[in-house]
Simulated assay, not measured.
Amino acid sequence: MKTILGSVAVCLAAFLAAACADNSPERDDTPTMAEASRSEETMNDSATSRSGGSEWAAEHPYVGMWVTADGHIRQELLPDGRYDEARGNRQSAYTGRYWITGDRIEYRDDTGFSADGEFDGDVLHHAGYVFYREGSLAHRRATEGDE
C-alpha cells in the first residue's frame, strides 16, 4: 500500500511539474516516468522520507555549494532537486536536475546530457573533477597551496 501511495504521489508531482513548467519547445523540464521513479527511490532512501521532494532535499546533507580547489567550477545543489553550475565567469553554464541515492549522484542537464558522481564525505568525484563542499575542512586543505 505504501509503495502504491508513493507512486501516486510521484505521478501527481510529475503532473504538477508539467502543468507549471515552461512549455517552450526548446526546453522540456517534465520528468519522465523513469526520472520520477528515481526521484521516489531517492526520497525513500532517506530516513526522513516525505511526499514532497523539496522538503526532503532541503534536509539532505549534500545540498549546497561544491567547488573545485581552484574555484573555477562552482556547482550548487539546490534544495528543489536542481543544480546550477558556473564555470569561471560564466554563470549558470550548466543547469539541470539531480538525484541522490546513498552516496551516488546522477545528473541530467537541461540539454539532455547525463553524468554521475560519488560523494566521499565533503568530497565529490564527478566527471573527472574533484569538488569540495565549500568552506569544509577538505576544501580548506585543498586550497592551502593556492594562497
Rank of each mutant, 00 (worst) to 15 (best):
M1D: 15
T3E: 15
G6D: 12
S7R: 13
A9K: 09
A9P: 04
A9V: 08
V10E: 12
A13L: 08
A14N: 03
A14R: 02
A14F: 08
F15G: 06
L16K: 04
A19E: 05
D22H: 10
S24G: 10
D29K: 12
P31C: 03
A34K: 12
E35F: 09
A36L: 15
R38D: 12
E40S: 10
E41P: 04
T42Q: 14
M43W: 07
M43L: 14
D45Q: 10
S46W: 10
T48V: 04
S49T: 09
S51D: 11
G52I: 14
G53S: 14
E55N: 03
W56L: 12
A57P: 04
V63M: 04
G64P: 00
G64M: 00
G64Q: 01
M65F: 00
W66C: 06
T68H: 03
A69I: 00
G71K: 10
H72T: 10
R74S: 03
E76H: 05
E76Y: 01
L78V: 13
D80E: 07
D80Q: 09
G81T: 08
G81A: 12
R82L: 13
R82I: 13
D84M: 11
E85V: 04
N89M: 08
Q91P: 06
Y94R: 15
Y94G: 01
R97S: 12
Y98W: 11
Y98S: 10
G102A: 11
G102I: 04
D103M: 05
I105L: 02
Y107W: 12
Y107E: 01
D109G: 09
T111R: 13
G112L: 07
D116R: 05
D116K: 06
G117F: 03
G117R: 00
F119N: 11
F119I: 12
D122E: 10
V123R: 07
H125S: 06
H126N: 02
H126F: 00
Y129S: 04
V130R: 01
R133E: 04
G135E: 06
S136A: 03
R140T: 03
R141S: 11
R141Y: 15
R141M: 14
T143D: 07
T143M: 05
D146W: 02
